[in-house]
Amino acid sequence: MRESAAERHERLLELVRDRGSARVSDLAALLGVSPVTARRDVELLAGEGRLDRVHGSVSWPGRRPGAGPVTGAAAGGGQGPVLGLLAPSSTYYFSEVIRGAHEAAARAGSRLILRISDYRPEEDAARTEGLLAAGAEGLLIAPGWRGPEDPAEHGAWITELPVPAVLLERRAAPGSALDGMDRVASDHRHGALLAVRHLVELGHGTPLLVARSDSPTALAVRSGYADALDALGLRAPRAVIDSVPAERQPEEFEAAVRALREAVGSGTASAALVHNDVDAIQMVQRLADLGVRVPEDLALIAYDDEVAALADIPLTAVAPPKREVGREATRLLVERLTGGHGADEPRRHLSLLPRLRVRDSCGARGTGGGSSARGSRDQVDRNSF
């Protein structure tokens, strides 16, 4: 099986950690890749703060050629503890979460160590062991869960960790052992409510939901959509349209687009909430080919707000507070480690509210006679990027 970029990055990090430092040309030979690939990998990892780079060589953060091992608070160059972060990805949604955690760790004088699971929950425990072996004194854990069964199948190890841990952008089943842990997460149910209410206030009938089902965020958006309909006294015009990645499952993606087109053409719906940004942008482009215009024929809101503002028609989007989640989780973990919250203090579940960023894609008016949108200042950013 061909090695993924994430696996290659982990091998590169292991080599640098074991050696303390290494030349980029030597890493290319050890990894069996071209110097260009090794250089690109090093630049990416250095940009994420996972390596230090100087004059053609790289070193483990806080270490320089000839230096001895660095452990404990000294590794961060300050007085704070060493923190480990397990994330399912370093791109798209989680890049901002990681950035927020890194900022908060730096303010606390701590060093943040990062490991990526590449959405393989069966490997989460082993990667976390690597963080502990690298000196992590506390952990921020965002497991690589995809489906609803993953927390039960791949989550028990988290409750047995030997150091304080905070769940990051993940929720556990009520009453489970994981539910008794500290956690910080976006309130995606509130985000879905913001989108549905905005479209209804624009005068549309009940919006459709087009969503994936391959991540905790996608599942939370689906659940939040159902809760939003209940809260607003609405009924779904039809079942949720299942979305999939267009590049991996083009036929299924096309079926989702055509289902949305049929709903618009038949008058079933004039508005939709689409998870996620990438799917929404590709759907808008394909719908245009099929004669459905956004926002004239369909008002559309995307969920995630990673790239929504960059679409040909800038997309209104729900923006989870990703960077703030990383910051708050790191602050909570540091407080646990430094005595701000002792062992006898209650565990904390912190939910941060998404915002709605209004752009051009929901400008069409429906025929339901609703009032125009007046989102409160703390919920709606007009043309905010």
Rank of each mutant, 00 (worst) to 15 (best):
Glu123His: 09
Ala329Lys: 00
Pro354Arg: 01
Leu234Tyr: 03
Ala133Leu: 12
Ile301Met: 02
Val24Trp: 02
Glu247Tyr: 14
Ala280Tyr: 02
Val42Ser: 11
Gly130Leu: 04
Pro69Thr: 07
Gly72Glu: 13
Leu208Pro: 07
Thr338Met: 11
Ser89Val: 00
Gln249Pro: 00
Leu333Glu: 03
Val200Ser: 05
Val58Glu: 09
Arg146Asn: 13
Glu247Thr: 13
Leu12Ser: 08
Leu27Lys: 11
Thr316Trp: 02
Arg17Thr: 11
Ala272Asn: 06
Gly191Thr: 04
Asp378Lys: 14
Val264Lys: 00
Glu201Leu: 14
Arg2Pro: 15
Asp230Trp: 07
Ala269Cys: 04
Arg107Ala: 12
Arg347Pro: 02
Arg374Val: 08
Arg357Tyr: 15
His204Tyr: 13
Pro143Arg: 10
His275Leu: 07
Val42Leu: 08
Gly375Arg: 11
Pro148His: 13
Ala239Cys: 03
Leu178Gln: 11
Arg212Ala: 09
Arg99Asn: 10
Asp182Tyr: 12
Ser95Glu: 15
Leu202Tyr: 12
Ala101Asp: 03
Ala38Met: 01
Arg170Asn: 14
Arg336Asn: 13
Gly32Arg: 12
Ile116Trp: 00
Asp118Thr: 01
Leu30Gln: 15
Val334Ala: 10
Gly375Ser: 12
Met1Lys: 12
Ser186Lys: 06
Arg120Val: 09
His55Gln: 11
Leu132Asn: 12
Gly326Arg: 03
His349Thr: 04
Tyr92Leu: 08
Val325Phe: 09
Arg64Tyr: 10
Arg258Pro: 00
Asp52Met: 04
Glu335Met: 09
Leu140Trp: 07
Gln249Asp: 15
Tyr93Met: 02
Val264Arg: 01
Glu14Cys: 15
Pro65Tyr: 11
Leu45Tyr: 13
Leu83Tyr: 02
Ser34Asn: 07
Arg115Asp: 05
Ser372Ile: 05
Gly342Arg: 15
Val244Cys: 12
Glu149Cys: 01
Cys362Lys: 09
Asp279Val: 05
Ala255His: 14
Ala67Cys: 04
Arg323Tyr: 06
His204Cys: 08
Gln249His: 14
Glu169His: 14
Gly205Phe: 09
Asp41Leu: 05
Glu262Val: 05
Gly62Cys: 09
Leu112Val: 02
Ser223Thr: 07
Pro346Val: 10
Ala133Ile: 04
Val200Asn: 01
Leu114Asn: 01
Leu167Ile: 08
Leu161Arg: 15
Ala108Gln: 10
Val294Ser: 00
Ala263Val: 00
His349Pro: 00
Ala231Glu: 12
Leu15Gly: 10
His190Met: 04
Arg327Glu: 15
Arg8Cys: 05
Leu298Gly: 04
Gly363Ile: 00
Asp214Gly: 04
Leu352Pro: 04
Leu161Lys: 08
Val24Cys: 09
Arg111Asn: 00
Gly138Leu: 02
Trp60Gln: 01
Ile241Leu: 14
Ala142Leu: 06
Ala239His: 12
Pro250Ile: 06
Ser186Asp: 06
Ala104Met: 05
Leu51Asp: 03
Ala308His: 01
Pro207Trp: 07
Ala177Gly: 12
Tyr225Ile: 02
Ala67Ile: 00
Thr159Tyr: 01
Asp378Thr: 15
Gly265Gln: 14
Pro207Cys: 10
